[in-house]
Design a protein around this nucleic acid. Structure first.
Lengths: 189, 189
DNA sequence: CGACACATGTAACACGTTACATGATTTG
DNA sequence: CAAATCATGTAACGTGTTACATGTGTCG
């Protein structure tokens, strides 16, 4: 759904051909999400089939530009006018993974959380580096980067929250018991 | 990818048949993400083809349970052991939408943001209601809910951040000028 | 009996990814 | 000339959704 409307939005600026669309799309998101060129052509075919775009005659350079139709404009307006609801977002694989980790024998949920946290922190640093690195006159791409940062931060916070909940729920997971008479501390709460 | 490993994780608890798997999967995530039953059967076929699960003989009740294989166990361990990276997550449709809204003629990015914000706030309230509503002995499903809450909160924060950036970048979008000498109020902050 | 939950499957379709095939133009 | 970039497309495959077809058992 995303790409379809993305292409329509780009065509709203004026007629463009496939290759151009890919470049423009990647520019809009700062190259964060590479768009496969094959996908562009197949999507354009479907858009043409649905009469949301119209192919223009091949020009001198052998390029096949498309223009948006009235129906396409209407569809695009609908997209921009309607908020994206939770239900049409993909399942959160990480949440599922952690939920299942809790009840899968032989899997330590804590380890899963910590591994994920480390990885997420690393990409978070990468994003911050990217952000400061480029001067970026480009507002759109800066906001996309911020979106990824906000999400990654939320993920880290959630992971911490999960670990806290786990500790409260199951203080120590079959803690290795010293045979000597040492105390085991810090288990409270 | 998600469902494949989800089913494997459930089968790690012991052999189950399709219908059972769907119920168990939905229970794990508190019914937040309904899983289509057709999907379960097709996924099981593929898992069997790849020898990650093995079909057991049909039992009295006419049910066809599956059990996880050694290869399946290995695959599952790999899933749990490897963090989910940003690159194998789906594109963030909202971020794309907003980035494109900024450069699409005839579209007011501010309106798009505000519409989205309202919708997200509403689902956020719904989540909080859900959370307090059920007593929930179930840790897994509580954490899944929290994940959605954390995400939605991050989204709202991001939207606010976007609006602030927009204001700084383009203080007033071709503000309609009153021909009379009246002030225009209430535009700030 | 009729509705509903249980249970299994297939077919059609949409979307995304990867890889392959092909050719023109530019540039070192 | 060779390599890179520009440019268009097709085929195969994985995954997900919806809808359809079918049958059993149970409960009001």
């Amino acid at each position: 759904m995303s790409i379809k409307h993305g292409l329509l939005a780009l065509l709203e600026r004026g007629p463009m051909y496939g290759y151009q669309l890919r470049v423009a799309f990647e520019e809009s998101t700062g190259g964060t999400w590479p768009l496969n060129i094959g996908q562009v052509y197949t999507t354009l075919s479907r858009l043409e089939r649905d009469e949301l775009v119209r192919a223009l005659p091949e020009n001198e350079g052998g390029q096949r530009p498309y223009e948006i139709t009235e129906a396409g404009r209407a569809d695009l307006a609908g997209w921009f006018g309607t908020p994206i609801s939770r239900s049409d977002r993909p399942r959160d694989e990480l949440a599922i993974k952690l939920a299942l980790a809790l009840t899968t024998p032989g899997v330590d949920a804590r380890t899963v959380m910590q591994t994920q946290r480390t990885a997420t922190m690393r990409t978070l640093q990468e994003y911050t580096r990217l952000k400061s690195g480029a001067g970026n006159g480009d507002l759109a791409w800066r906001l996309v980067l911020d979106a990824m940062i906000f999400q990654a931060e939320a993920e880290v916070r959630w992971l911490d929250h999960c670990e806290a909940s786990l500790v409260r729920y199951a203080p120590l997971p079959a803690a290795p018991i010293e045979s000597t008479a040492h105390d085991q501390e810090g288990v409270s709460k």
